[in-house]
Design a protein around this nucleic acid. Structure first.
Lengths: 115, 115
DNA sequence: TATCCTCCCTTGTGTCACAAGGGTAAGGGG
DNA sequence: CCCCTTACCCTTGTGACACAAGGGAGGATA
């Protein structure tokens, strides 16, 4: 928990990236725009966070990358989900939801005793 | 995101500790039991995580501590919310919920385009 | 007496978000 | 034609932190 911000990025970044790529290849810049847009600008993704994350995911075998040309006619590296990456997302997303829900419930408890 | 686990602890630990103390003073061991119980054992709190966190929160002025004797007649350090700690929780909890909800929505999107 | 449980803590170690830096090249306005 | 903005890529500190693995003391139970 940073001083004024909620550090939910850390637990969710990899999942959000995998999700962004679930509709097809995208370049880094596009991914960061998608995340910002899809979370109503609540999660702002620094470039120094995004690119290391992409490389990490690639290293783990969940992504592959390929140079290409963007819609704006610019050189861009397109990331694509691997089969393992797709499986990873399918496995982790429900876990994320379960955990988040459990915490949400705990944070709203009315009494110390089990509900 | 650890290899097989969801790292939601990082974003939520401080908030959960503040919540645990919202009903009155508690010692560290009791807090860890409460968190484990309140999250259906989804969040397991290592001692090497808990105690540094308590000291951190105390350093930031959200907690105070005092040695006492536990229900089991053992020496224990009781932590108590300060006014600042209570305010902190009131301010941060809604933020946590908003962020978590935004991410949950993003992870469930049916299409790339804004919903 | 031995063992378990309750309670407290510290010191590596590795991971990671972020700030701050740097670079290339396209397109458009003057 | 030059400049500025925008769109893209990246790296290197640095600090924060979760965790594993260690250690210790004292009560309770058998």
């Amino acid at each position: 928990m940073a001083d004024t911000e909620i550090d939910l990025l850390r637990s969710s970044l990899d999942l959000l990236v995998l999700k962004a790529l679930s509709w097809g290849p995208m370049h880094g810049y596009g991914i960061s725009e998608w995340i910002e847009d899809a979370t109503s600008s609540l999660l702002l993704l620094e470039e120094g966070t995004l690119y290391p994350a992409l490389h990490r995911l690639e290293r783990r075998g969940w992504l592959t990358s390929e140079w290409g040309v963007s819609d704006n006619n610019r050189r861009a590296k397109f990331y694509r989900l691997t089969t393992a990456g797709r499986a990873r997302f399918r496995a982790q997303a429900p876990l994320w939801h379960r955990h988040a829900e459990a915490i949400a419930v705990a944070l709203r408890r009315r009494s110390v005793q089990p509900s």
